[in-house]
């Protein structure tokens, strides 16, 4: 679906952050939004842990988060590991569970989230947001 068709030409890409832990997802969302500075703000939603507050992955929370941030310009989903990766892949394979234009982005969780929120907030399209998040892999720390 094109941005024009659904959310207008200036619709922002939504970001969903999926972690095994609710507090981790929430904190990374807060960090990414905090570091993205002023200007247009991309919608960001955290989907961490299980609905009862435990550690794990919840398809329900992920689906809900994706719907919350969908503005018609696509949704970039960043995940931490294991079941978070597999659950999002399985949901995407279902076809109708996540909003159209949802994409699992291959990126490091924290660094990728910051890059995704910054680029999405600047109005970049889903391809550019995914590319920026993925590029975070190439930043060496030693």
């Amino acid at each position: 679906m094109s941005a024009e068709a659904a959310g207008g030409a200036d619709a922002l890409v939504g970001i969903v952050l999926v972690s095994h832990s609710g507090p981790v997802a929430e904190s990374v969302a807060e960090l990414a939004v905090g570091l993205s500075g002023g200007g247009a703000k991309a919608p960001v939603a955290a989907a961490g842990g299980t609905p009862d507050g435990g550690l794990g992955t919840s398809a329900e929370l992920i689906t809900e988060a994706a719907r919350t941030v969908d503005r018609g310009a696509g949704v970039a989903v960043l995940v931490d590991l294991g079941s978070a990766v597999l659950t999002v892949k399985a949901l995407l394979a279902e076809g109708d569970e996540l909003p159209e234009g949802s994409r699992l982005v291959d990126a490091p969780f924290v660094e990728g989230a910051v890059a995704a929120v910054v680029t999405a907030s600047a109005g970049a399209d889903l391809d550019a947001v995914a590319a920026a998040a993925g590029e975070a892999y190439s930043y060496r720390k030693e």
Binding site: G56, T57, S83, T87, A90
Partner: peptide, 21 residues
């Protein structure tokens, strides 16, 4: 399969869910 993907909470959910679906 759909129930398993939604309710398990671990990697076995999407894996068994995908198997059955």
């Amino acid at each position: 399969g759909r129930q398993l993907i939604s309710t398990v909470g671990g990697a076995s959910g999407p894996l068994y869910g995908t198997l059955l679906r």
